[in-house]
Design a protein around this nucleic acid. Structure first.
Lengths: 374, 374
DNA sequence: TTGAAAGCGGTACCAG
DNA sequence: CTGGTACCGCTTTCAA
């Protein structure tokens, strides 16, 4: 009944034992052995038990069903051999990689790197690792599809700056659970976002409290989810203060430095005395351009931005901001995804409230006599 | 001879065929099937050939040994089923993951994110993917060890800010080939570094060419590899201009904003008219602190930094820099590692020469009468 | 040119 | 409480 060329486990154990014994001949060899990856079978052989027993012991589950003596012996051997389970083999067998993928549009962006940090922590706490992937705007959908189709991840955390349609079709390719990060997609699964609206409201409200009445808004891509939210928060704050909304004070660009520069030129022609910018980088662009135009900052123009990062403090004048819980966003998203992977119910969409207002040097009360625009 | 409970491949093929045929009953099911991960066996069954044949065809090698007709049929089926090889299974079988790990101390650092980008490109070109991992300064060695011991990567790209000893022992845990990034470690394998010395020399030389004679240096951690190199480049430039080296003009800190602030206080008490800073961030700290102290920038103090990133332009005054080929560094390192994995000879250590000098607004000729320090 | 079968290193079910 | 064994999905000899 025993197939040809097939060693029974008893035979194998003996074979392996010989190997092990040989190794023990010299300590050097043993040391070398520790460097190598020991397999379950080797541990089993050396402990003189079956692989299945070793597996049970090492996985720690159903511990009560194993004689303490046996367990200790196995543990000792495993330790001596510096045994580590082979990740690949386990993943294949269990059809689970215990890896979460996180796809971000850029790495050197405090928002995403903070989110990654948060996600990584939660992942680690739950025995998952995080496969970071940054998706250049060019490679349409490949990243998302690749990660999931190659069975490399159990689930995906997706941050995207793409248009709804593009993102939707990318996501369709993924055949793993996912949760969206910093972004909503109508009619789609879970997503964790920051409450940009409230943040924008808060920032605008602060400018109003300083006495500003003509407040410009440097927005993001007009189609974008967060851009809409921020604009809406801006309007809410104006309304609450009985200030009429003036479309000419709003400019939408993308979130880059140069877009900030360009956009602010339009605002510079108005009688605005303050600007609420969507991001640190666009605020930086705005301030740079204004300075170039000879404006006194913050005297002639107050600037506040959403999100906070060390970068805000490095600008001149140091930028006032409304903090955003970006790391928390990563944590929450990872938590949601892991719950989902454990078969839990899809929970409702969350919007994390903004953090504190950080007043630095870029915001002051308006001058009594507004400067004549240049 | 056939083991019990074992389906021969013929039997299995039939079983699978039944499944496939059933699926084809409705297009909806076929569509659904495409979403799922099809296995080799399923493709084989549907194409009515053996899995090994499918494998051969799909891997594209030894193509000539397969009848065109067969190959076409297989390709068609694979395509219809949207077949993707299971990464895990392949990795297990081949004992290779075709994944490179890259370990960096921080993600939101233009130096490392550029290196990652470069490494990723080269990796992709060679059929590898990149597993990005950031190692918090706290978790001693675990990251490096984990990645390799879990058999998740074939090789490692390691950027580290740790002390030699720490790094050395971490590396000892890794049982995969690795190459060091942005850092050398005496007596250790391959590493790819930037020529910081030459960059520092170039930056200093530029300040000298503007007429500065009393030039301060804002250095990095005094033990660090790059810090030494930069200091040395600074000295070389001075010497070439017959300017005596004055230790009181050199301050070593770490690379943070606040370290930049602190360090510059010492320099502010000297008669220095210019500063060569190790990094953008420390330069930013220095400028912030000087401004706070009432200095006119750049009039009373010129500042230049090593490395270039969008960030430099956002500062005020916009920072002059010497570009560093950080993305190239990632590319070269990945290339080296891949060569090593293919069994090639360990090539010599490289130092990539700095890029262009970018003159922005932070560097001007010294005033004829140096300001009395405050 | 194609098929059969032996694993890679685990996990988990089923016996005993 | 422990052993035996059938896979997970793929690659790679070895035969036919």
């Amino acid at each position: 009944m025993v197939p040809r060329n097939r060693v029974t486990s008893v035979q194998f154990r003996q074979l392996a034992l010989i190997r092990v014994v040989n190794c023990e001949a010299g300590e050097i060899l043993v040391a070398k052995k520790q460097r190598q990856k020991a397999t379950l079978a080797e541990v089993a052989a050396m402990a003189e038990v079956d692989v299945s027993t070793v597996s049970r012991v090492l996985r720690g589950q159903s511990e009560q069903r194993i004689r303490a003596e046996t367990r200790d012996r196995i543990l000792e051997v495993a330790n001596k051999l510096n045994y580590r389970a082979n990740y690949t083999a386990r993943a294949l067998r269990m059809s689970r990689t215990f890896t979460l993928g996180i796809v971000v549009p850029q790495l050197d962006n405090p928002v995403f790197s903070a989110a990654i940090r948060g996600a990584e922590n939660v992942a680690a706490q739950n025995g998952y690792s995080l496969l970071i992937s940054h998706r250049d705007p060019g490679d349409a959908g490949t990243t998302i599809a690749k990660l999931s189709q190659m069975n490399r991840v159990d689930g995906l955390l997706v941050a995207s700056l793409d248009a709804d349609e593009v993102l939707r079709s990318d996501l369709a390719e993924a055949n793993v659970p996912y949760v969206l990060l910093n972004r909503q997609l109508p009619g789609t699964a879970l997503s964790v976002v920051l409450d940009s609206r409230e943040a924008a409201r808060k920032a605008t409200e602060y400018l109003i409290s300083l006495g500003h009445r003509r407040i410009g808004h440097l927005g993001g891509r007009s189609g974008g989810f967060n851009a809409q939210e921020r604009l809406s928060g801006y309007k809410i704050a104006l309304e609450a203060a009985n200030i009429a909304f003036d479309p000419s004070l709003v400019t939408m660009g993308d979130y880059t430095f140069s877009a900030g520069r360009e956009s602010v030129r339009k605002l510079a022609k108005t009688d605005a005395t303050a600007i609420m910018a969507a991001t640190l980088v666009s605020a930086a662009g705005a301030m740079a351009e204004l300075r170039l135009g000879g404006w006194q900052l913050p005297g002639e123009m107050s600037v506040i931005a959403l999100h906070d990062a060390p970068f805000a403090e490095m600008l001149f004048p140091a930028l006032s901001t409304v903090m955003m819980p970006t790391e928390e966003m990563g944590r929450v998203a990872a938590d949601l995804l892991i719950k989902k992977l454990s078969g839990a119910e899809p929970e409702p969409v969350l919007a994390l409230p903004p953090g504190r207002l950080i007043v630095r040097d870029s915001t002051v009360a308006p001058r009594s006599h507004a400067r004549i625009s240049k």
